[in-house]
Amino acid sequence: MTYRLHLDPALHAAYKALLDDARRDLSVCLLDALENPLAHSEPYGIDDGIMRTIARGRVAGVIYIGDNEITLVQLNHAG
């Protein structure tokens, strides 16, 4: 099953402000998670299968897995 991606406008603005490398790394994480979110993420705190962490390079995010949609709820960049 392929999920849809939801980005809040404020997080989308933060994504657009990232450097090219960080933007690419986050895009790869999100695209992988859309195909299989549990296989391409790690638990965020307690493993409830809903809140998950994605990370690559110097960028990390927290995703919420809904029925047919993944929502990026947090974005962090160490750079």
Rank of each mutant, 00 (worst) to 15 (best):
68 N>C: 07
2 T>E: 15
10 A>H: 11
73 V>A: 02
38 L>D: 09
42 E>V: 12
49 G>P: 08
61 G>H: 01
67 D>P: 05
56 R>V: 08
7 L>K: 10
3 Y>P: 09
20 D>R: 11
27 S>H: 09
53 T>V: 15
23 R>E: 02
47 D>R: 13
11 L>V: 06
17 A>T: 04
38 L>A: 10
1 M>R: 11
38 L>S: 11
11 L>Q: 04
53 T>Y: 15
9 P>W: 09
62 V>P: 15
5 L>Q: 01
4 R>A: 08
10 A>G: 05
29 C>Y: 07
33 A>C: 00
11 L>S: 08
31 L>R: 12
47 D>N: 01
42 E>N: 15
53 T>R: 13
49 G>S: 05
36 N>M: 02
12 H>A: 13
50 I>N: 12
26 L>G: 04
59 V>S: 10
43 P>K: 09
11 L>N: 00
3 Y>H: 00
66 G>P: 05
17 A>D: 00
6 H>T: 11
17 A>H: 00
73 V>D: 03
29 C>L: 05
43 P>C: 04
16 K>E: 15
57 G>W: 10
65 I>A: 06
61 G>M: 09
77 H>V: 12
55 A>I: 05
18 L>F: 02
3 Y>K: 03
34 L>F: 01
21 D>G: 14
67 D>K: 06
42 E>A: 13
25 D>Q: 03
40 H>I: 02
75 L>G: 01
29 C>P: 06
58 R>D: 13
36 N>S: 02
16 K>F: 15
28 V>P: 07
15 Y>A: 01
28 V>R: 10
42 E>K: 15
78 A>C: 12
54 I>T: 02
2 T>M: 09
57 G>C: 12
22 A>V: 00
35 E>Q: 10
42 E>I: 12
54 I>V: 09
22 A>T: 00
30 L>P: 01
52 R>C: 10
34 L>P: 02
63 I>S: 11
35 E>N: 09
34 L>Q: 07
3 Y>I: 03
4 R>S: 14
62 V>I: 13
24 R>K: 10
2 T>K: 13
32 D>V: 03
